[in-house]
């Protein structure tokens, strides 16, 4: 499995990381090396094996539907930029929302 420069661009796009200032071929090479190493898993037979996605699978009581307000001003004061108590971003065309 070779991670090409194009694949690096595609992944960086999904991850929203700007890689234009990086040594892309070195990055591609390092990722390739790691991903190659991971191919060792190809030899493992996992038919009829359930995946383990969680560290703990104890069942627990669920949260009660009760409202507990939080000091929301603290959250807004952590924001780098706000306007009229909104978070702000460069203009977007709405509806591209999911």
């Amino acid at each position: 499995m070779k991670i090409t420069g194009d694949l690096v661009d595609k992944i960086a796009g999904l991850a929203h990381l700007d890689v234009t200032k990086k040594n892309k071929s070195l990055l591609a090479e390092q990722l390739t090396q790691i991903v190659e190493h991971m191919r060792v898993l190809d030899q493992v037979d996992v038919s009829n094996v359930e995946p383990m996605f969680h560290g703990c699978i104890e069942t627990k009581p669920l949260r009660k539907d009760e409202v507990a307000p939080f000091e929301h001003e603290l959250i807004m004061s952590s924001a780098t930029v706000t306007q009229d108590n909104y978070f702000t971003v460069p203009s977007i065309i709405d509806g591209e929302n999911e």
């Binding site: 992944i11 960086a12 999904l14 990381l17 700007d18 890689v19 990722l31 991903v35």
Partner: peptide, 20 residues
Amino acid sequence: YSRGEAFGDEVQRRIMLGTF
């Protein structure tokens, strides 16, 4: 740019790997 400028190399490498 926010993410590319502020995450270190190792973190970016792992995000890339994980995204892949």
